Amino acid sequence: MSKRVLVTGASTGIGAATVRRARSAGWEVLATARREDRLKALAEETGCEWITADLTVDEDVAKLAERAREFGIDALVNNAGGARGVDKVEDGKIEDWQAMYDMNVLGTLRITQAILPIFRERGKGSFVFLTSTAAHDTYPGGGGYTAAKHAERMLPNTMRLELVGEPIRLIEIGPGMVKTEEFSLNRLGSEEKAEEVYEGVDEPLLGEDIAEAIMWTLELPDHVNIDSMLIRPVAQASNTVVARK
Rank of each mutant, 00 (worst) to 15 (best):
S2K: 15
S11E: 03
T12S: 12
G13C: 03
I14P: 03
I14W: 09
G15H: 05
A16V: 01
R21H: 14
R23H: 11
A25P: 00
G26W: 09
G26D: 07
T32Y: 05
A41I: 00
A43W: 00
E44R: 13
E44Y: 04
T46L: 08
G47L: 06
W50P: 01
W50G: 02
I51R: 14
I51F: 11
T52Q: 08
T56Y: 02
V61W: 04
V61K: 01
A62D: 12
A62G: 02
R67S: 13
E70F: 09
F71K: 06
F71Y: 08
I73T: 05
D74T: 10
V77W: 03
N78L: 02
G81Y: 03
R84Y: 12
R84M: 14
G85V: 01
D87E: 15
K88E: 13
K88R: 14
V89K: 10
D91L: 10
K93G: 02
K93F: 06
I94K: 12
M100G: 11
N104F: 00
V105Q: 08
L109I: 13
I111Y: 00
I115A: 06
I118G: 08
I118Y: 08
F119E: 07
R122D: 12
G123T: 04
F127M: 04
L130F: 06
T131N: 11
A135F: 03
A135N: 01
A135H: 02
T138S: 15
T138L: 05
T138C: 12
G142V: 04
G144T: 10
A148H: 03
K149M: 04
E152C: 07
M154S: 11
L155Q: 06
V164G: 04
E172I: 01
L188Q: 08
A194H: 09
V197C: 08
G200L: 14
D202T: 11
D202E: 15
E208I: 02
A213V: 10
I214W: 03
M215C: 11
T217M: 04
D222K: 05
I226P: 05
D227E: 13
M229F: 13
I231F: 06
Q236D: 10
V241C: 03
